[in-house]
């Protein structure tokens, strides 16, 4: 059944790549502006062993990933406990919520000027921007998860004399785990995006920087290689977190 439409899929790919190649080969568009698909693949291959903008593409990706992981971990480590605590202590909720709502509408990328001013352009600045992108989904999903925990479970724990700390870690955390993991996936996607934005503007290494250098040298093949690398890493991150999501769901017998 699924394969019935396969000819159409193949046709779609052929038309896309064919149109691209034809346009590039026709000479109507400057080859610097639109390289052919083959040239992009060749460039990608050569970037893995030849240095561009100071490093090979793997080294650029590695430095991007380090920043990404730092910002993402920070967002998870702060956002999840804060979200759970806000779900449990009403007063904290009333204090933090309005502030959070006000800050949330600031696009992560708008933090660039302050990030540079406070932490410089090395590792601190980009990490703040990734944090700004990844933090809200962590907090919101932990909070929602905690708010929708079955009242009976909380009451049972309270009756048995559980402390606030034990309720948060032994009742709310496990019960809201699916929601939290779903939030992590969203925040990883947003964090990865914000990282690219940050690197386009402030950094001197990393995959975004590679693309900016390609852009200013009018080397479109480099820019497109960078886009491909970003897309592939984005997929890998998403697949990893999706399997975590499935693992959590399976662990809970769902």
């Amino acid at each position: 059944m699924r394969y019935r439409y396969l000819p159409y899929s193949i046709a779609g790919i052929v038309v896309f790549i064919g149109a691209w190649s034809l346009l590039a080969a026709s000479g109507k568009v400057n080859a610097l502006i639109l390289p052919s698909p083959l040239e992009v693949i060749r460039m990608f291959a050569s970037l893995t062993h030849e240095k561009f903008a100071g490093y090979t593409i793997q080294a650029h990706l590695a430095s991007s990933l380090v920043r990404f992981l730092a910002g993402f971990m920070l967002a998870a480590v702060i956002g999840i406990p804060l979200g759970l605590a806000m779900g449990w202590f009403r007063r904290l909720d009333y204090v933090v919520s309005p502030l959070f709502e006000a800050v949330r509408f600031v696009a992560p990328i708008a933090w660039v000027p302050f990030a540079v001013l406070w932490f410089g352009t090395g590792i601190g600045g980009p990490v703040l921007i990734i944090f700004a992108g990844a933090f809200p989904p962590c907090l919101i999903n932990a909070y929602r998860g905690a708010r929708f925990v079955d009242r009976h479970m909380i009451e049972a724990a309270l009756t048995l004399g559980a402390s606030d700390r034990r309720i948060i870690f032994d009742v709310l955390l496990p019960a809201s785990l699916p929601s939290i993991v779903a939030g992590l996936r969203i925040s990883a996607g947003l964090g990865w995006q914000s990282l690219i934005g940050a690197e386009l503007i402030v950094v001197s290494a990393g995959i975004g920087y590679l693309m900016v250098q390609g852009q200013s040298n009018l080397n479109t093949a480099v820019v497109m290689s960078g886009m491909a690398a970003i897309g592939i890493v984005g997929i890998v991150i998403d697949v990893a977190l999706r399997s975590l999501e499935h693992a959590v769901a399976r662990g809970r017998g769902m």
Binding site: I33, I109, W192, Q193, S194, I196, G197, L200, G208, M211, V212, G214, Q215, L218, T220, V223, M224, G226, M227, A228, I230, G231, I232, G234, I235, D238
Partner: peptide, 17 residues
Amino acid sequence: AIRPIPPLAWIPLAVVW
């Protein structure tokens, strides 16, 4: 194939084009 590329990553390409 195109979807996983974040919109921000299109900025350098858009500038070249």
